[in-house]
């Protein structure tokens, strides 16, 4: 444990990097994923097609390949992202596909009568989605979205392979410094991840109970 305390600054910086990476990518994924879900149920066929194409592309590509493409592929066409920006975008764009599918399943769980009633009083497609369908969809979507975001926090470890000093990147670094501290380092890193994911899981559980009351 003394070893971890000695390297606390390093651990803290890595923790903050993982946290900020997760927050930014999570925000991007939530916003983009919801927009994609709206596009997938929209009455405009080209929009539906485009959103489906996006989802199938990102959902069926390994995350490492997405990182590789954004960080090493895009510079080929003179579009250079920093390692950190590349990591945020890779993680966010990839996770958006999964958010989209979770939200879409929630939208489908809202009875068609709700959308018909909102259209019948003159709400536009966007208004009906915002005011009536999405608020009800998010209720059923909270648990699966929780899973998506917990998976995303752990997926952020792929950034370690692309020169971002986040939590997982500490494993080889600290173990190389002192192989005898392997257990302590593993424990420290796992606990640091849990400091992010456990409150997330708890928050999801609370939110689930709060929004589930009125059915």
């Amino acid at each position: 444990m003394q070893f971890l305390a000695d390297n606390f600054d390093l651990l803290w910086d890595a923790f903050l990097t993982t946290l900020s990476l997760s927050l930014l990518a999570g925000l991007l994924a939530l916003v983009l994923g919801t927009l994609l879900a709206a596009a997938r149920v929209s009455p405009i066929p080209p929009l539906r097609g485009l959103a489906s194409f996006y989802v199938e592309t990102f959902r069926n590509t390994p995350l490492t390949v997405v990182f590789f493409f954004l960080i090493f592929g895009l510079p080929q066409i003179d579009f250079i992202l920093g390692f950190y920006t590349g990591a945020v975008l890779s993680l966010g764009l990839y996770t958006a596909a999964f958010v989209c599918e979770a939200v879409r399943s929630g939208i489908n769980s809202v009875s068609t009568g709700q959308a018909e009633a909102s259209r019948a009083i003159g709400l536009t497609f966007g208004q009906s989605l915002r005011e009536v369908v999405l608020p009800q969809a998010f209720r059923t979507v909270v648990p699966p979205l929780g899973n998506v975001f917990i998976a995303m926090v752990k997926n952020s470890s792929i950034a370690a392979g692309f020169a971002t000093s986040e939590l997982s990147s500490l494993l080889p670094r600290l173990v190389n410094a002192d192989a005898g501290q392997l257990t302590a380092v593993l424990l420290g890193v796992v606990i640091a991840y849990m400091i992010i994911t456990l409150p997330l899981a708890f928050g999801v559980h609370r939110l689930e109970r709060r929004v589930a009351i009125l059915r």
Partner: peptide, 15 residues
């Protein structure tokens, strides 16, 4: 908006 509609299954906004 100018045409009121009442459905068989009410369809009140549940939330």
């Amino acid at each position: 908006a100018d045409v009121g509609m009442v459905f068989q299954s009410f369809n009140l906004f549940a939330h």
